[in-house]
């Protein structure tokens, strides 16, 4: 069942980016609508949509505005956008209260290391499943697939005991390793590798290239979009992860950004202006990442079916 589920999801993810994600503008504007409507630009619709978007973004805007107010200006009736002056010092005060710079460094280290391990091991396994013939391949792949359905919560309890046994509580390896070998990356890349025509490898094979060279010099470059999607989402998942860091770390040396924000909430949660400064600091990196990589991400989600969260 699982294999059917995930198998059918994949056709959109093809090596040549075909079909599924038509980029904006690839189709003549208004091509969908009948002729008579083309002349009337959807001004009202666009205006209302913009209003909806602004309403949607209001919480984030309010966060930033509140982060620049004094404590007394947070709660006013009617609401005021700005306080008497813009208190950028809230940011340095928040950073003084808890070392968010350190948290950010910790999180970046965890996320980058985890992403690299995930990409490398997934690429190797995916190549084996997509291109090599060996006994038990399909049943082994089914085992991998089967674990995709298991929620993280099922494994956290024994995982905690394993970490405890290894003496890994409050270490980076405890934050990185448990989630760097999930079947998802293997599955995603395998599906992509399968869409790459084997003809491309043929001449290399005739020239005597081994599997390693075929993977690194032919497959990986072609599959770059799939790697990019997997990289970005693995990175974001690590960055935002909360439950697991909450379980295995309680020391500032390994605290991650979301955990740091939770700590801030617990210790200084009534200082709303500083809390909002801390929240802004916590949310800026991934928000910027998405805005910078938007074109790529939108297509990646569409193609890989990473939706549903």
């Amino acid at each position: 069942m699982t294999s059917e589920a995930l198998g059918t999801r994949s056709p959109g993810l093809t090596a040549d980016d075909g079909g599924a994600g038509t980029p904006d503008g690839a189709r003549p504007a208004g091509g969908v609508v009948p002729q008579r409507r083309r002349r009337r630009p959807p001004v009202v619709s666009q205006l209302l949509l913009t209003l909806a978007l602004l309403l949607f973004l209001a919480p984030l805007g309010w966060m930033v505005l509140s982060s620049l107010k004094s404590a007394g200006e947070i709660f006013t009736t009617p609401p005021e956008l700005f306080g008497e002056s813009l208190l950028f010092s809230n940011y340095s005060n928040a950073l003084d209260f808890l070392p968010f710079g350190r948290f950010m460094l910790n999180t970046a280290f965890v996320a980058v290391t985890g992403t690299v391990i995930t990409l490398v091991t997934s690429a190797l396994s995916a190549y084996a499943f997509a291109r090599l013939r060996f006994r038990g391949r399909d049943s082994l792949f089914l085992v991998y697939l089967g674990t995709l359905m298991v929620p993280q919560e099922v494994v956290v309890v024994p995982m905690f005991l394993i970490m405890n046994q290894l003496g890994w509580i409050n270490t980076f390896q405890a934050l990185v390793l448990p989630w760097a070998f999930t079947a998802f990356g293997t599955f995603l890349l395998r599906q992509f590798f399968l869409t790459i025509p084997k003809e491309l490898e043929e001449s290399a094979r005739i020239d005597g290239a081994g599997h390693w060279r075929i993977l690194t010099q032919i497959i990986v470059p072609i599959a770059a979009p799939a790697f990019a999607v997997l990289a970005v989402f693995t990175f974001i998942t690590y960055w935002n992860s909360f439950l697991w860091p909450l379980i295995v770390t309680n020391d500032v040396t390994t605290t991650t950004v979301p955990l740091g924000l939770n700590l801030f909430l617990g210790q200084n949660g009534q200082a709303w202006n500083l809390l909002m400064a801390a929240a802004t600091i916590s949310m800026a990196p991934t928000a910027l990442l998405v805005l910078l990589l938007q074109r790529y991400l939108v297509k990646g989600i569409a193609l890989s079916g990473l939706g549903g969260r």
Binding site: L53, F56, L57, P59, L60, W62, M63, S66, I74, I236, W239, N240, F242, V257, P258, L259, L261, N262, L265, W272, L275, M276, A279, S282, M283, T286, A287, L289, V290, L291, Q294, L297, V298, R309
Partner: peptide, 20 residues
């Protein structure tokens, strides 16, 4: 992409903002 932003910012941050 703007409607997508909160989906990638840390959930803790989103929740703290809604707390306010």
């Amino acid at each position: 992409v703007l409607f997508f932003v909160p989906a990638v910012t840390p959930m803790v941050g989103n929740a703290v903002v809604f707390g306010l």
